[in-house]
Design a protein around this nucleic acid. Structure first.
Lengths: 188, 188
DNA sequence: GTCTATACGTTGATAGAC
DNA sequence: GTCTATCAACGTATAGAC
């Protein structure tokens, strides 16, 4: 039982990283098995439905990981404006690392597969819902009424997602820094 | 000279549509030539650098097309708040068409290739810059000072890009409608 | 649970005739 | 400008031994 999940976990972890960096179609199963160090023949044992199933579980893992990271960041400040800006600062810092170890979480997979794989699309939708809820919950805890908090959760998530995409493409953090300044305007 | 550019144009137009719908790696050159109706053997004559070159010109065409569309939409109202909301309304209407004829412009290509193709990344960066400038120019024309207008251009573009991604993934227009309500708050 | 071998399609790309 | 033939590489997936 000790190593029973180890192989499966290695595959999911490696796949999560590669899907994030390269997207869905550019990432081959050969590359995943090779880089994971997991036994090559074990992939279809753990994921009978092949690549799609592996991608679904990878998106789920990435969503959980990112959500936890967001929550940990937002906990550092009581004031929601400062908390969200703190989170963006951490995004910026990570972005500045020379060695780009990850891209925009799940975005490439979502765009590539939303029209062709219903279960994969649904898993991506859940991921974004989870990201929105992190902001919404922070606002509710700060006294915002639920309706307003839900709307602002969507707005803040959209701003960060969009500026992350822009920054990723531009290769700099300009867009992220600009939207950070507008957070106080939004939370009035 | 009449049909000289016709074949090349057909290839670029078809490629633009397919890259937008399926992403870069999922779209094969065979599919592009077949659906374009352009002669199969002409691709490497018009695009000696192969797929990358075709993608660059496709992103350029998409950027020009979308920019024009945005400008046409924003021209319909003098007030910048109403104008931007008008644009979002048109996005929503188009989104509701059953037959999904296009996805999120260039986003998939940008995410898939930014880390592996410098010229393609640069073309995507220019596209986003062009989108931002549409909003910025509208604000300048409405009396905003240049610095403020540039910042708000980035912010509005980020919000729309992010909510478009979210809506595309969710399969509904909820996020787009929510951010539209926040435009007046931002333009204060 | 894991491994090897293999099947079969498709990819991007090139060469050479026309 | 266009076409056909062809290439090697890689894609996913399966079968069957261990």
């Amino acid at each position: 039982m000790t190593d029973k999940v180890s192989s499966k976990d290695k595959l999911i972890k490696t796949a999560s990283r590669l899907f994030q960096l390269q997207g869905y179609h550019a990432t081959g199963l050969n590359q995943i098995t090779k880089e994971s160090g997991a036994p090559k023949g074990s992939l279809y044992y753990h994921f009978p439905n092949g690549k799609e199933e592996l991608a679904i579980e990878s998106v789920r893992l990435t969503a959980k990981f990112v959500t936890n990271r967001m929550n940990a960041s937002l906990r550092k400040k009581d004031d929601p404006v400062e908390a969200i800006q703190q989170f963006i600062v951490e995004l910026v810092e990570e972005f500045k690392q020379e060695r780009r170890t990850d891209g925009v979480p799940i975005a490439a997979v979502a765009l590539e597969t939303a029209l062709v794989s219903e279960p994969l699309r649904e898993e991506c939708r859940l991921a974004y819902e989870s990201f929105q809820n992190v902001f919404t919950n922070k606002l509710i805890a700060s006294g915002y009424d639920e309706k307003k908090a839900k709307e602002l959760g969507v707005v803040i998530h959209s701003m960060i997602e969009g500026s992350f995409l822009t920054s990723f493409t531009a290769g700099n953090v300009d867009a992220l820094l600009v939207i950070s300044k507008q957070i106080p305007v939004l939370l009035n």
